[in-house]
């Protein structure tokens, strides 16, 4: 699916996709880096029913929220034939001791046996992140492992 970019001279850029229902959903990215979430109106497709200002963090959270489930569904589908293997997503909270640390610093694999297969941040997905990958608050970690391993991983990510 392609983003459609339209230049707003002097102000920024509008980036949107057109849904199957015909609605436009996207963002207006202003010069100063602030964003607005836009959703077109039904009665007048040229106009917007909503234009909601978002902070970078909020935008990232929405992006991760929308992006991660798809990844998890795909991975779960692939693992369906392997009993005991589960895929789950965890959001790295502000309080986590691993914010601004590398993925290697968590020693997740050694300590719990699970694997981080992808990290979703601000709508982009980083597949197979290396141990040097620096974690940010709000990152969504997609993790594959056994149920017990995933439970341990959840504790470890939150409390160290």
């Amino acid at each position: 699916m392609n983003f459609e970019d339209t230049s707003l001279p002097g102000l920024g850029v509008r980036r949107e996709i057109t849904l199957a229902s015909g609605r436009r959903v996207g963002v207006v990215i202003l010069r100063d880096g602030t964003m607005q979430l836009i959703i077109s109106q039904r009665e007048d497709p040229d106009a917007c029913a909503a234009a909601i200002p978002l902070s970078t963090e909020e935008a990232g959270a929405i992006g991760a929220m929308l992006g991660a489930p798809q990844l998890v569904t795909q991975l779960s589908d692939q693992h369906r034939d392997l009993p005991g293997v589960n895929t789950q997503q965890f959001v790295l909270s502000h309080e986590s001791p691993y914010v601004n640390q590398t993925l290697g610093d968590t020693h997740l694999r050694t300590r719990t046996g699970v694997s981080v297969v992808a990290i979703s941040r601000s709508g982009s997905v980083f597949p197979s992140p290396s141990p040097g990958f620096e974690l940010n608050a709000g990152d969504v970690l997609v993790i594959v492992g056994t149920s017990a391993g995933l439970e341990n991983a959840a504790h470890l990510i939150n409390d160290g």
Partner: peptide, 24 residues
């Protein structure tokens, strides 16, 4: 005009680039 469009939440509207390009 840029201020009014922004105040009225019309930055995402389809006619806005038309208006802005006339101003440019």
């Amino acid at each position: 005009i840029a201020k009014v469009l922004s105040d009225l939440g019309r930055l995402g509207n389809r006619e806005t680039p038309v208006v802005l390009s006339i101003l440019v």
